[in-house]
Write a protein that binds this DNA or RNA. Structure first.
Lengths: 210, 210, 210, 210
DNA sequence: TCGTAACCGAGACGGTACGTCTGGTCTTTTT
DNA sequence: AAAAAGACCAGACGTACCGTCTCGGTTACGA
């Protein structure tokens, strides 16, 4: 494989190692990301072709493939820009309130929104593209999880959680049910759902489960 | 729409209303299901084409489309045959033990198995095919949920759960984290995970969350 | 190679050996040939894409590739339909007059005409596509030559040519200069050229060269 | 048009009018020509891309386009270097012997040789690139023809040809059949062919055709 | 028993997206 | 200002897949 191939593991397009030749134009990159974001707001990823993106961005397909190995990795990067900044980390001084704010915020970001549709499409794509799956774990699930672990660390330092608590389990119980309802749409992502999940976790904490 | 079109909502192929003409051959149907199951054991749904299935089953594509409207609905039916029977309903006399057996059983069915890969592929397909999404809710999530509600009903009659308990929330907290780890593969679906989830639910029950 | 691949040596699409499955539609084939002929009348082969042809014929690219392995072989077939019938075989009773009529007819068919442009484009394509080169020799040069050999055979039976005359050489001296001027356009394909070539051949016959 | 654009009509790259800035490196030019010649010896022009040439010559594509406007004109120049010097002008004192030597020499240069393949590829390219067609006539056909006209001029001064003889026709009858067999490969370019053509021309001369 | 409706396998059909390649131009750093 | 390197746009290429349609042929019911 050529050294100038795209990252292939889904890393975002960065500067090439050698500084020789014409560098990547950041205008091109930005146009691609913006076009992708715009199209993702209109329709699901599976109904967007790379030709659509190239046309919309007034860019050649080759310029896209130079940066991203698959449609999924591109959509992933476009999604990240949108999503991550909208997930502020609360700090109420009480874990249960932090979890409530976090989950409520997540729900409002994805429930029947363009972002939510993009997220569902991406999770679908992750199941069919192993390279994207790696990027997804390492560059989405991982960083998001790391941020959320700050909440449990603070709780530990406040004594709300024991020092050795299984924070990963706690966070999966927090988000797992939410992703479940998002993906299967069998029941609404409403306020009573959010409150119920968080109260269950609170009870589990009090009972020393984690 | 022609009366002889396939069910379109994903119902399994049944007898046509009028009995005139040559009836469906059940050998054909069986061959299709078997070929699909066999291919799903080898590789993900996204890498299986309908031509592959037709060739493998020594059947024409038209015979497939006569029965199932999309690849997803066929895969869905093939999956159901495999999956449902492997999910017996426990009856230990104690809710927490029932939940433990149920989740443990689910994990052993899907964790790094062909069934698990098929399930992931199907959930992906569900996100891109609205008709399949309906079938999925009505013919998979719904029935499975109905079976599991028997567990909570029994618990209610035993007094382990209050009569008005939100059993849907309870079940989403049970399965949500498991689907989460299945789809994102960020953490293992191991025994300690299963125990933790069930213990958390037990604590929530004791605290009267549901 | 699959038995249902296109002929690959450029034979025109005929009935598949096995009569199973949906047969080739001759309407489709006709539409493709007509579209190709129409486009060849407008612009040179090198500026016609298969997408153009497919769009013009209201046919999918796959339907074209099912029949012809390359653009050149398709253009070849389209050209043949146009060209061959326009080359009647004269029969004046005197070889030199037959040759004159034949060359004059060829010139009027190709000199600054759509057919001539198509012929030039095809000869160019023949140089870059070995499969087409075979087809060209066997299905164009060969048959045309065979027809022209009738002229020399008749001349032999009339005693105008000796029985063992090298008719191939004679015909190459007849057509070679004409193709030369067609392809290089360094001098006009005018009546004096035609007369000159034929008179030279006449002189060579009289001198017993052939 | 910029004064520093390449000749555009296919003239070979020469010194720029202004002597300012870094001068053309003749090593660059030589490397390009050598790479092109080398690649033309391996495979037909149509299978050689400008990227191939640039890579092979360790030169940038821009450096090529600075000198030649199209791939065809470059190949043309590379071909000329090879070809022209190999076509010495005979001077036997007798026209028919001169023609025989000339044609025999041409045949040995192109019959199943790398030069011959390059020539065929160039003629193909000429049909699709009008600018190259002009260059081809003016810088190849023209000069070569001019040289060959020396043969007929000498013959005229010796009285072998009448003063007003149509030498162009004569030369087209000499080379036309040869190009014909080269391009269509329907019959061999062998000695009997060469002799036959020349004898036919001899007979035509004797008969006063030209 | 015979007609007919609907099945059957095979595979062509139109349409669309893919990922690669090429030609010719442009942009950067280096010489 | 030319050089090498390589990104840029535009768009053709040949392949794959989808869901439908067409063919010759085969059941099995109902008249």
């Amino acid at each position: 494989m050529d050294t100038n191939d795209p990252p292939a593991d889904g890393r975002p397009p960065t500067k090439r190692p050698t500084a020789r030749g014409r560098p990547f134009s950041q205008r091109t990159e930005q146009a691609i990301i913006e076009a992708t974001t715009g199209l993702l707001a209109e329709r699901p990823l599976s109904e967007i072709s790379l030709d659509d993106i190239a046309t919309q961005a007034r860019v050649s397909k080759a310029s896209i493939y130079r940066r991203w190995p698959t449609k999924g990795t591109l959509a992933f990067d476009a999604f990240m820009v949108d999503f991550l900044d909208r997930q502020p980390l609360p700090n109420t001084g009480r874990l249960e309130d932090d979890l409530l704010a976090t989950l409520r915020n997540w729900v409002s970001a994805v429930d029947r929104t363009a972002t939510g549709r993009a997220l569902k499409g991406l999770i679908a794509e992750v199941q069919r593209d192993p390279a994207l799956a790696d990027a997804w774990r390492e560059r989405f699930i991982g960083p998001v999880r790391a941020r959320h672990l700050l909440l449990t660390e603070r709780a530990k330092s406040r004594g709300e959680l024991p020092p050795g608590a299984d924070a990963d389990l706690l966070l999966d119980i927090l988000f797992g049910p939410a992703y479940h309802r998002l993906l299967h749409a069998h029941l609404p992502l409403d306020e009573s759902f959010v409150r119920g999940v968080v109260r269950a976790i609170g009870a589990a904490i009090d009972a020393g489960v984690f």
